[in-house]
Structure formats: C-alpha cells, structure tokens
Amino acid sequence: MDRNKRKPWKKNLYENLDYEDNYTDPSFLQDLKTNHNLETYTFYEAFAGASRLSQQITIVTTFLIVFHYLYTEAVSPQNILAKASIITIIGYFIYTGKNFRLNNAVEDSKTAMAVLVFGYIFSPLLHTLTDSVSTDTILSTTFVMLALHLIFFDYGISAAIVSKAISLNTAIFGSICLASRLSSSFHAFVLLEVAAVYFALGPILIARIFSIPLLLATITVCFYFLFNISLTIFWIYICVLGFINFCCPFLFVHLQKHKNNIHGPWDEAIVNDMSCT
C-alpha cells in the first residue's frame, strides 16, 4: 500500500493495520520521561537513614553483651534482672508521657507479671530444649537468626521485605538458642526476659524517641563493654558502623547522578481512585 495513503498512526493496535507489526512512529517517544518524580537525598539524610540500622545493630550488640556476662557469670542474673526491670519501667513512663493513666498502667502491669510468671515456669524447658545440639551449631544458628532480625526489622520505611513478625520471632528464637548455653534455668529466664525487653518492647520506644544523640550514647556504651571483652570484636564493631554510617551513605549520594529510569506510554496503566468517585 502507498505510504502516502495510509491513515495517520495512532497508539491503538486496531487502527494501525496499514503499518508493519514492528513499526514505531516517531511520535511514540514524545511522552518519554526520564527520572520522573526522582527524589535526591543529601549526605545527612542518607546518614540519618543509615543510623536507624546502626541503632538496631547496637541494640543487638548490647543484648549479646548481656549474654556474655551471664555466660561467664561475671554479673549475677538477679542484678541484670533488676536493672532490666528498672529500665523497662523508665521506658514505659517515657513512652506514655502525658498520656499516662493509672488504669492503663495497672492493666499493663498485669500483662507484664503474666509474661514473667509464664517465662519463669517454662524457662527450665527452654533451657534444656537444645541440650543435644552442639555449641557451634547453636552459635551459628543464633548469628543467622539475628541477621534475619536485622533484615526484616521495621526501620520506618514501606517495603515488601519488612515484617515485624519475622523480625521478632527470629530474635526470640536466637535468644532461646543462647539461653540453652547458660548454667541454670534462672539464667535462661533472665536472658529471655531481657530479649523480650530488647526486641518486643524496645522497638516501640525507640521508634518514638530515636535521635542521633541517643545513637551516640548507645554506641559509647557498646564501645566501653566491647573494649573490655575483646579488642577484635571491638574493632569489628567500629568497622561495621563506619561502613554503614559513612561508606554506604557516601556511595548512595554519589551514585544518585547515574540513576536513569524511563517512563512512557509502555508503562502499566494506574487506576486513580479519585477519578472513580
């Protein structure tokens, strides 16, 4: 067919019978957009986002420090339980703030007591649950579980990989593995209660009061204890935090200029709910 007699090309499959199947009209790319609605971030914004991960790594590190002192029996479990209880009460008052109500506090106290009682009852079972498993396997499993906890943790962003349930369950499972290596069921009970404070209640409070000064304070605490426990772990901890808080944000900001997303008429249609009302 004479090209001069063909109908003008349209973005409609059924009206382009006069054109070859692989024909692409120059007007097709007029709607091409590059990096549409692209958001760029400064180094400080990237650093602030990475600090969320550093905060959770620091919380996991402090939990492992508590395990170390229970495992070596450098600190009595009664002492750790008392301090954990005091920190929990202080955190509760910080969380409630001006919304504190005595009736709510009483109900929450009943829930906390129920958790303590059931934890104490089942601690002998949990303490002997993995006696037949080697310590190397327990430590490897704990490392994997805590890594999954960090991967699936809710850092305040909307992503498909975020799962509070998986994050909490993996952390508790790792805590149960570590509790089985302690010397008594009461030691295991104390460690599991600390795990509940760190991984179940802690994220709720941290999400409300998180700040860079708080991060620096917790990092300083880890520095002090890790320096006294092991210089190797101390330097590994510093390198991990340095990579997360400085190298990763720098690379993220530096590579933003290479981002090149294209948008055009080939994109899937998006239904606008406002247009349906």
Rank of each mutant, 00 (worst) to 15 (best):
D108S: 10
G156S: 03
N22R: 10
K83F: 11
L168E: 07
L116E: 02
A200Q: 05
L81M: 12
Q55V: 12
D31F: 02
V221N: 08
H263Q: 13
V106L: 15
S275A: 11
F243D: 02
Y23C: 05
K11T: 03
E193N: 13
G49L: 05
L201N: 09
Y14P: 00
L13R: 14
T24E: 11
L139F: 15
V66F: 10
I89P: 02
L150W: 01
R101Y: 01
V106T: 02
F152D: 00
K33S: 08
G156N: 06
G242C: 03
S85L: 13
T220E: 04
I244F: 07
L53R: 07
K257C: 09
L201S: 04
F246R: 04
S211W: 02
F143D: 05
R6D: 02
E45P: 03
L116N: 13
S183G: 06
F93K: 06
S158N: 12
C222W: 02
N245V: 12
V221F: 15
L231Q: 11
I244V: 15
V106A: 13
T220H: 04
D267M: 14
V190R: 05
L102I: 14
H258V: 09
N4V: 13
K257G: 09
N12T: 00
N260E: 00
L139G: 03
A188G: 08
N260C: 09
K164P: 07
F186H: 10
L146K: 00
N103M: 07
N272D: 15
I176D: 00
A46R: 13
A196S: 11
R3H: 14
L231P: 00
N103G: 10
I166S: 05
R52C: 04
T277M: 11
L215V: 04
T96K: 15
T24I: 15
I204K: 15
C247R: 08
S140Y: 11
L32K: 13
T142Q: 08
I94P: 10
Y120C: 04
H68S: 10
P213Q: 11
K259V: 14
Y41E: 01
A84H: 06
G156M: 05
T61C: 08
D25T: 06
T96I: 04
I94V: 15
C222I: 00
P8I: 12
V197D: 12
S185P: 06
L182D: 04
S167W: 01
K164Q: 14
F43T: 02
T111I: 08
N12H: 06
L116G: 11
S140R: 14
F67C: 06
V194L: 01
P124D: 10
I65D: 03
